[in-house]
Design a protein around this nucleic acid. Sequence first.
DNA 1: GGTTATAAGTTATAAAATTCACATGCTAGG
DNA 2: CCTAGCATGTGAATTTTATAACTTATAACC
Lengths: 213, 213
Amino acid sequence: MKTLRVPEATVTRLSIYSRYLERLDRNGVTTVSSGEIAEGVGVSPAQVRKDLAYFGEFGTRGVGYNVKDLMRYTKKILGLDQDWPLILVGAGNLGYALCTYKGFNSRGFKIVGVFDNDLTKIGKKIAELEVLPMEKMPEVIQEYKARIGIIAVPPRAAQDVADYMVKNGLEAILNFAPVALNLPEGIEIRNVDLSVKLEILTFNLGFKSAQRL
Amino acid sequence: MKTLRVPEATVTRLSIYSRYLERLDRNGVTTVSSGEIAEGVGVSPAQVRKDLAYFGEFGTRGVGYNVKDLMRYTKKILGLDQDWPLILVGAGNLGYALCTYKGFNSRGFKIVGVFDNDLTKIGKKIAELEVLPMEKMPEVIQEYKARIGIIAVPPRAAQDVADYMVKNGLEAILNFAPVALNLPEGIEIRNVDLSVKLEILTFNLGFKSAQRL
DNA sequence: GGTTATAAGTTATAAAATTCACATGCTAGG
DNA sequence: CCTAGCATGTGAATTTTATAACTTATAACC
């Protein structure tokens, strides 16, 4: 089988296209061109076509793409034709926000267990979910067949949490703690860093000011 | 003046190096090599040196980098030798989490105003800050000379909030709503998308499963 | 039914980013 | 003072990614 590697940037954009298509669909739009998608998400039309070309032919020449179909295709490609149970560790403010974040649910993500080692948090409820002690994680993972974990704990605790997740069979981790995690081969890990983008802004603002001198 | 463009990926990594250096410094480490930084943040040593080379020579051949110095340099480059007042719109759970997020404060970011148009939220306190109605934004921006805004509202409201921010003089926006914002030339905008990275994970998990067949 | 306009798909080109490999310069030790 | 060892800084080579240009297919219209 010819396996051509898909750039991560392409997958990122695919996710964005996918959500944009959902919006178009909600608005009753039935057909869309690469140019319109490009316009809607802020990339070039060629980029849209190139990205889609990694996965097949989804459009009709001279016409464009059927919104509903392309939406389904993109979701399927991203693995979103199924629901994904998520394990969350960290019942602080960020954990709370993630639990209640609508953007997850609408894409088929569902947090099925919230864990913390802080005794003052255990037992409390977050959006109908009781915060559980870490020891309960194995059984929750089993019950829901969870494969993905989210880390929303302070930096110093993140590595231990990650290790525990891996030990209990999780295969992928989304890490909100601003530290690089060290994990065994084969475990998928991605970081969401809340302040890096902010620092890109300050960098650019500084640069802009310098330009004016 | 020779103005060579700095890749955004380089700025991103610089931010990560910078925080890693802070950690080393806290731990009392005084000298570090490009290889150690690379190891610590998960990139190649050449990458570290190349990234730094955009901005000058900071190390000593045969020795490495002075941790404290390089930390200061990186912060300076990123514009973090000063404090940055931030304007936040959206007093929902995400907004609340951002208000209390320690990762901001430790880098010199300070949220100086929280705004919402939801009457049930206005007047409430989030971490010593009272949630204000949108109309109060102009005076808060003036008072603190704020230049950066954060959007933490539902997608459908994001564009209006962005327009309002720009109208009132903000020059840069960090957008947590999963939509592409349309803004005038010269306004810096970056998106933080909480679910894109998650979808990269599901994509990769799906791919992994396919490989096994 | 042929023709034209349109937009996808594809190939080629260009640009960008990363890696590699080496020369340079510093420090320490004899 | 000279030499050996080491890690930076850098220019070249490679790889990757994005843009542009072109070809092909479809549909609508005369």
